[in-house]
Design a binder for these strands. Sequence first.
DNA 1: TATCTGAGTTTGACATGCGAACTTAGATAG
DNA 2: CTATCTAAGTTCGCATGTCAAACTCAGATA
Lengths: 159, 159
Amino acid sequence: MSNSDSVETIRRRAPIPTADCALAQAAEEIGDRWSILILREAFFGVMRYDDIREDLGIPRSVLTDRLSKLVAHGLLERRPYQEAGDRRRFGYALTGKGRDLAPTLIALTHWSEAHILGAPGPIDVVDAASGRSLRVALVDDRGRVVDPERAAPKLRNPS
Amino acid sequence: MSNSDSVETIRRRAPIPTADCALAQAAEEIGDRWSILILREAFFGVMRYDDIREDLGIPRSVLTDRLSKLVAHGLLERRPYQEAGDRRRFGYALTGKGRDLAPTLIALTHWSEAHILGAPGPIDVVDAASGRSLRVALVDDRGRVVDPERAAPKLRNPS
DNA sequence: TATCTGAGTTTGACATGCGAACTTAGATAG
DNA sequence: CTATCTAAGTTCGCATGTCAAACTCAGATA
């Protein structure tokens, strides 16, 4: 460890196979452009097929496919709604599993503002109660905020 | 707001167009299955073409394409390395922009462990200094942890 | 000169994505 | 009671993307 510059360890294999990896599983469920954008619509409360379609410019066939996959994976649920003097229709709403993606999407948004947009962006995430701006951080088991540079992966059961 | 059940506001349009949305831009850069998995390899320190390929089972043509896009977007950099008695080759390493995705990927991993795996998963993220387990949380401007359910989007400049 | 190895490129079959046109069901108008 | 309208899909034909396998290339070793 004395001769090289700042090269980190060159590892030849990932410490765990892709099949066991939580991240890989997650990528299967939401790792595509449209699914992420559809979830964004859901977080904003846009829940109708044609509204989502017009906001995103997504082809109908693809929207139908992605909605059914998101429902099958339990991120969205198909729920009826009815407007005055109209027949009952179906819209799509976040489930608990879907809502729990919020910190991930907020982190991704902040990253994009910092590294792609280069500016704070039009949406601020605030504490609904206090109105204070929120950001995503790593905290330890005592609730202390830790610099992300200090985070390291560690095998849990090296049995 | 008295007759309906827990239906949230049905919004007809997203508050900002997709083109201005940080999340949409981010989805362009990393919103595909393979890019996320390649970044996972990079975080583990796997930086060589054939190593990544074998870990992921990704076709060569696709790997070449994704690596060049990740480099073009500034998430990875192509850097030379040399092993004893071998010619110099090139590998791929995270840039600062790439490393700053850590909180997003950690959040996504924790979400997957909670909602897909249903168990803590083989990797634990710890503070390299203290060894304490880390999790992703929303904190306000005074460093206080806030329940994600209380987070709400708010337009920054309703000019 | 022949062989090996890491890092690609090429190729041709197959799958997915796309926009436009078509379908369906129930509410309203004539 | 037929005709129209609207939201939510399906279907269709073409373009683009993905895949596995074969081929290329360059420098080190035998």
